[in-house]
Write a protein that binds this DNA or RNA. Structure first.
Lengths: 186, 186
DNA sequence: TGTACATCAGTGAACGCGCGTTCACTGATGTAC
DNA sequence: TGTACATCAGTGAACGCGCGTTCACTGATGTAC
């Protein structure tokens, strides 16, 4: 039975939200279209009324995940940007973030899979990375150097959590600790 | 027809070498057991004379890939450790490494998949990360600080290449450039 | 505003396909004497 | 060293399974008048 346009839009949002969590948790290949639709409260058949194919959903899920993930960096007043950045970094390198990829950084969870995906998916990922880097650059040197620092910071964070999640607990703690700010300079 | 023990051992090495390349190139799920065996010059049925299952092969492939990848850092004389480290870093952040994951860093190519794998696989990955970190720590401060720096360097390298491979070319260049040593201090 | 009809969101069965794994078989290799 | 037999590496067919995607169908919604 047909549902209203407003309800269709709500269905679409539920699908994207579910995919954004399930893909980050288990990888794109670890969550089937059926899994995603079930998590969104529907059956699998209706999926193709919303997306061309599974990879189109991945693009939408990445955009949503990055936007949500970068929000704390981008929404506060400029004067508090440095504080927001520190808080972001601390959370990023926390045991909670390591243990909960479903709500965590999409770049760390899906990078290698996106590297093998269609240009459309890579484009969504690129825009997301730019958003996070933009957030990390706020309130920094206005020259190109601020952007450079932001990108290097982001790379360190992503690498740290990718490694920490794949290694045993002891080594993970050493990695996360090594990448944490060790003084006020950072 | 049965083959000699020596030939069996050679078969095993070919399987591991093929898997180590194919898994890095396309992900573990992107290369089937049949693909690996074909690349090793055999048919799929014999696979289980060598490995319990596909994940056991992943553990072996990770060990081999890390050992090969860390070798340049570990084998030279101690006096040249700093130079080897710089060369390693430069190659790591190069366009060649970005374009050729099959011969590249196993951590960057397979981290997220390993994070979801069995303890046996995670253990092999952990030992590999330790080996690379050991290589990066050679000739550095003997205190704990040298190891800390090595781990942070490794995280930056891994994150940079994970991001660079998933984003478009222009942003990739910016990321790799931002993580490259910009003076003799690094 | 009301009516008649076209549209289409969601359902659930079905499809073709590739996967990891198993198995019977072959015949060369390993081993016990 | 030679012989007889057990072992087992590799082959290729077959298995069960889950996947992405398609499709006929239903009936509520959207729309043209």
């Amino acid at each position: 039975m047909r549902v209203s346009n407003a309800e269709k839009e709500r269905s679409r949002e539920r699908i994207i939200t579910a995919a954004s969590r399930l893909f980050r948790a288990g990888g794109v290949e670890g969550a089937s279209v059926g899994d995603v639709m079930r998590a969104a409260g529907m059956t699998h058949g209706g999926f193709y009324r919303h997306f061309e194919d599974k990879e189109a959903l991945l693009a939408a899920a990445l955009t949503a995940a990055f936007e949500e993930f970068a929000r704390p960096l981008l929404e506060g007043p400029a004067a508090e940007a440095a504080a927001a950045r520190n808080e972001f970094r601390t959370h990023y390198l926390s045991e909670e973030h390591r243990a909960d990829p479903a709500a965590g950084c999409p770049a760390a969870a899906l990078g290698p899979e996106v590297a093998r995906a269609r240009p459309e998916v890579r484009a969504a990922f690129s825009r997301g990375v730019e958003r996070v880097a933009e957030g990390l650059a706020r309130g920094r040197a206005t020259s190109g150097e601020g952007g450079r620092e932001a990108l290097r910071d982001l790379a360190t964070l992503v690498g740290a959590i990718v490694l920490a999640r794949a290694v045993d607990d002891e080594l993970a703690r050493a990695i996360l600790g090594a990448c944490a700010p060790d003084d006020a300079r950072r």
